[in-house]
Simulated scan of single mutants.
Amino acid sequence: MSNTESIKIYHNPACGTSRNTLGLIRNTGVEPTVIEYLQTPPSKAELIQMIQDADLSVRAAIRCNVDPYRDLNLEQEDWSDEQLIDFMLQYPILINRPFVVTSVGTRLCRPSEIVLDILPVAQQGVFTKEDGEQVVDENGQRIQ
């Protein structure tokens, strides 16, 4: 993937963090491939690859504050990674979001500004998150 090629975001438009991450990507002038993963979940191989590439454990890639997590008692430590992956594919709401894949790397972008670490192109100006927090200044530089 070259610098001008695809940036892929596994997106949930109902999630503020996901919307902010998408906004930060678009603030580079690049239009990413947007995959609304609740309607189009990744394949098992894609999900496993994203988790590995992001250097996460399977448990770290699971959303804990959703009904399937509680209903399936996923907090119990005796579930294998294979079983957890299968649950994530059966119930995509269990996949934490947003995952972003670029030529620089793959990250679970929580908080959204983590995406700045893997974008292959620079920010083009100010970016303010939905909550009013400015994370990129007028020079396109990350505010620490």
Score class of each variant (00 low, 15 high):
M1A: 14
T4V: 15
T4L: 14
E5L: 06
S6F: 13
S6K: 14
S6V: 12
I7C: 04
K8Y: 04
Y10V: 07
H11M: 10
H11D: 09
H11L: 14
H11W: 13
P13F: 00
C15H: 10
C15L: 05
G16T: 15
G16P: 12
T17F: 12
S18R: 07
S18V: 07
S18G: 08
R19Y: 13
N20V: 06
N20H: 08
T21M: 10
L22G: 01
L24K: 10
I25G: 12
N27I: 07
N27V: 06
T28I: 05
G29N: 01
V30Y: 03
T33D: 15
V34C: 11
V34T: 15
E36S: 15
E36A: 14
Y37C: 00
Y37P: 09
Q39L: 11
Q39C: 08
P41Q: 03
P41H: 02
P42D: 13
S43Q: 15
S43W: 11
K44H: 07
A45Q: 07
A45P: 10
E46K: 08
E46M: 04
L47W: 01
I48M: 03
Q49F: 12
I51T: 09
I51M: 05
Q52G: 08
D53F: 09
A54Y: 03
D55H: 13
D55F: 10
A61L: 07
A61V: 04
A61E: 00
A61S: 07
I62T: 03
R63A: 04
R63Y: 05
C64E: 06
C64P: 00
C64H: 04
V66Q: 02
D67A: 15
Y69I: 03
D71Y: 13
N73C: 09
N73I: 01
Q76Y: 02
Q76K: 13
Q76I: 02
E77L: 02
E77S: 07
D78M: 06
S80L: 07
S80Q: 02
D81K: 02
D81P: 03
E82A: 08
L84R: 00
D86A: 13
F87G: 02
M88T: 06
L89R: 13
L89M: 12
Y91C: 04
N96R: 10
N96P: 08
P98G: 14
F99Q: 05
V101Q: 14
T102A: 01
T102E: 11
S103Q: 12
V104D: 00
V104Q: 07
V104S: 00
G105A: 06
C109R: 01
C109D: 01
R110K: 05
P111M: 05
P111Q: 06
P111H: 03
S112T: 14
S112F: 11
E113L: 13
E113H: 15
L116F: 06
L116C: 07
D117C: 06
I118P: 09
I118V: 15
L119I: 05
L119Y: 03
P120F: 03
P120N: 05
P120T: 12
V121K: 09
V121C: 14
A122M: 12
A122R: 12
Q123A: 11
Q123D: 05
Q124E: 10
F127W: 15
K129W: 13
V135H: 02
V135W: 12
V135Y: 09
V136A: 10
V136N: 01
D137I: 04
E138A: 15
E138K: 09
N139L: 13
G140I: 00
R142W: 15
I143F: 15
Q144C: 02
Q144E: 14
